[in-house]
Amino acid sequence: MLELRDIAIRQDDFSLSADLSLEQGGRFAVIGASGSGKSTLLSLIGGFLAPDSGRILWQGQDITGVPPGDRPISTLFQHHNLFPHLTVKQNIGMGLRPDLRLNRYQTTRVSQVIDQVGLTGTGDRRPAALSGGQQSRVALARVLLRARPVLLLDEPFAALGPALKAEMLVLLADIADSTQATVLMVTHDPQDARVFSPKTILVEDGRAHPPRDTGPLLDDPPPGLRAYLG
């Protein structure tokens, strides 16, 4: 279980608090107006921001002061998920060993996940030679290989067209199922939340509210969210 106990952070005139318990293997959409603190919430969990107070626990262990790379977490950002000067294989291999000194087994695993995400034959290409969808697959392949039990996604498919985005969400759901990962996905699109996440965390009024069932929340949103969704 991932727990955020009385987490609070203040930056200039912005503040966010959270007190959440997220069960293992759950999929959660994170939704809220622009500037409400969705990305800040993910940055706190990912270890890119330190809270002013409170603790973050994974399976009962305090990970509040643990560096990002040592947390049981993989993160997919909105941009810059791939190193443009490295090949597909190297970008994915970094998920196993950042120094890329892979043994034979690890090299085989890289090839396997490349096949698994439908990128067979592209291993030696660089990101610039791939389409947007293929680049997303490379990032997902690395997540698959890292097999961390928590996955944070900060609108990683926002730049993709609707069909491609739907395809990626299916692939992401497969990966989440196969790794039993707890997934938090920031999205602006209520349809994504409905398709992917049974539960949704609403970030509003400086607070990340406990998860609620996605369908009822979006069918009858509170006034602030209603104004945002239109």
Binding site: G46, G47, F48, P67, P68, G69, D70, I73, S74, T75, F77, H80, N81, F83, M94, G95, P98
Partner: peptide
């Protein structure tokens, strides 16, 4: 952030 998350 990506480098930090990968412990690079």
């Amino acid at each position: 952030q990506l480098a930090a998350s990968l412990d690079l």
